[in-house]
Design a protein around this nucleic acid. Structure first.
Lengths: 206, 206
DNA sequence: CGACTTCTGTACTGGCCGGTACAATAAGCG
DNA sequence: CGCTTATTGTACCGGCCAGTACAGAAGTCG
């Protein structure tokens, strides 16, 4: 009962995602959000709560929407395919013509680990969860014999995550998809293809 | 003549660098800066101008101070040494115990290429200049026979820059120096050591 | 129809922001 | 010692921010 709201909450949240994605948390104002969502402030508060709470909802929706290619990538059969899908997916997603460049979870806020703000903690948690998921997928690959026994899933996951973060910053700086794909080509050469070659290349390390 | 200022401008600028480095441009207020610099607002304006202008001065000082390892790295004799020094230097610099984690030039502001603010343009210019310098160094290495002829200096420079950016985000998220060094170990395996191996690993690419 | 409940629109609040006016202060110089 | 010049400290400005009070509007249910 009561007066029905005359906007679609999911659609409004999608608009909010785009605004945060483009401008980051700090530089986004409630006025920006209301304009983009087509509603006014009391409605925003009633439906989504505080700006911080709205950001966390947006982050969640981003993970399940634009960033869903990540979980899809983890479902691929081999570790090598997972790695390539993660990197190519990041390059493609972050240079889309119709979406802001870069990644909301990385560029959403300038955070440092000792920052106790809820926004910072939500972002750091989201990033850590992403890396952990990759690591667990690679550990499974190793158990399945899909990844050489002397490879280190944790290090590989950290490396993949590092490259993905780097792609984000490059995309935000204005890199094109082609440039990013070239970087992905190079980054994937690290991937261990066979146990012997992997060992050989490790042996002469410093 | 006139009353002499009772603070050291360079020292005050160093303090400003630390504040911007830790909090980023947007989250840093003039009150933060004045407190850290030990001066009050009119003195700050007289000595450094606007907050934006102060940030650009801080960025410049950062490049010539904490980030000076980059230009030092470019002076090393071989391309391989240059690459390793850049990555190790980034890992070390961005996880220092006495300095904020991450890189001022990357985390200083959430920017997008179509952002016309002076701060955004200064940051993007600084990043592009950094990558260009690496690329030119690698082109020289190739002329000197120090890098295989079939390697692509522009792609390698973009790759190095991407990994460095990624290290920055990981450092800001709380990664330790050891974790970053492991990533550097992996990242450096990409480096072309001899023309034949480089070609071999390229041939079966997709 | 009329009571009730929920949402919408306007207009506002206290607080913080970047930037500055102005008077007091501290030096050099004749 | 005064005059000039530059910096300092205080106190303030308009503007924008996130968040909200309140009245009117739009539905449901008896």
């Amino acid at each position: 009962m009561g007066r029905p709201r005359n906007f679609d909450a999911d659609e409004a949240l999608d608009r909010a995602v785009l605004v945060f994605w483009e401008r980051g948390y700090d530089r986004t104002t409630l006025t920006d959000l209301c304009d983009a969502m087509g509603i006014n402030r009391p409605s925003l508060y009633a439906a989504f709560g505080t700006k911080e709470e709205l950001f966390e909802r947006a982050l969640d929706r981003y993970a399940n929407g634009p960033q869903a290619y990540e979980s899809a990538a983890l479902g691929l059969p081999t570790a090598r395919e997972v790695a390539e899908a993660l990197l190519r997916g990041a390059a493609e997603r972050q240079t889309g013509a119709d979406t802001p460049h870069g990644c909301l979870a990385v560029l959403g806020a300038t955070t440092h680990p000792d920052d106790e703000s809820p926004v910072a903690r939500a972002l750091i948690a989201a990033r850590s969860a992403g890396e952990l998921a990759v690591r667990e997928r690679l550990e499974r690959a190793q158990r399945e014999g899909d990844l050489p026994a002397d490879a280190d899933p944790a290090e590989l996951a950290a490396y993949l995550r590092t490259v993905i973060y780097g792609l984000t910053v490059k995309a935000a700086t204005g890199a094109t998809r082609e440039e990013l794909d070239d970087v992905v080509d190079l980054a994937l050469r690290v991937w261990p293809t066979s146990s012997s070659e992997w060992g050989m290349r490790t042996a002469d390390g410093h």
